[in-house]
Simulated scan of single mutants.
Amino acid sequence: MAISESTNPEERRGGTRIQMQILGSFMTDAIGATACEICDLAPGGVRLSATRQPSQDDRIGLNIPALGRFVGKVAWVDGNEFGVQFTASAGARALANELSTRRSLERMNITLRKDGQAPTLTLSRENGESSEVTLQKLTVEGASFTADTLPEVDETVTICDMPATVMKVVNDRFAVRFHPPREAALD
């Protein structure tokens, strides 16, 4: 996921981000260690706030206690905020993906089973029919499921009160892309 080069901060975001307020620190060649606040995080980048800002295109090292170290490039600077596009570390991307998945689980009010079995959820269709589906994979933007009764591609469904569009159906599996959260649509 890349942070676009738009001049509008709202358009620079690459994918859905998890809002947060975590303290960390960053370092560039020109600026020593500087405290910062992590404002939001996505698999491809992060938005930070700090009293001192790096320059656009600077290489940056970012340390977020309890999450790890990230390496990236400053994609934009606007006032006391700036965006960083991750440039290395598959581990950092995996961690950001894990955080995104956990956020999706929270939004859907899903508790993972302790026995490791995939949770069974209710899928509701626009025609009023409901069926049980088994979660296979979840990301911040979508999910895949197995089911006995499959929806159609491009059909709008609701899973755990979250509307989604069916993107793919193969054998006994289907994948959906979630619609943006209502709060984001009002901004």
Rank of each mutant, 00 (worst) to 15 (best):
S4D: 09
E5C: 02
P9A: 08
E11R: 09
R13L: 08
G14E: 12
G14I: 11
T16G: 14
R17N: 10
I22A: 06
G24Y: 01
S25C: 09
D29T: 06
D29S: 02
I31E: 05
A35F: 00
A35W: 01
E37F: 04
I38T: 00
I38V: 15
A42W: 09
A42S: 15
V46H: 02
R47K: 14
L48Y: 09
D57M: 02
D57S: 10
D58R: 00
G61K: 01
L67E: 01
F70Y: 14
F70E: 05
G79I: 03
G79F: 06
V84G: 02
A88F: 10
G91V: 12
R93G: 13
R93I: 13
E98A: 15
L99S: 10
T101Y: 10
E106F: 14
I110E: 14
T111A: 12
L112K: 11
R113A: 08
G116C: 10
R125N: 15
E132V: 01
E132F: 00
V133Q: 07
T139C: 12
A143V: 06
T149E: 12
P151R: 08
E152T: 13
E152H: 06
E152G: 08
V153K: 14
D161A: 12
M162V: 14
P163E: 06
A164K: 06
A164Y: 09
T165W: 05
V166F: 03
K168A: 07
K168D: 15
V169F: 02
D172V: 07
V176R: 03
V176C: 11
F178W: 08
P180K: 05
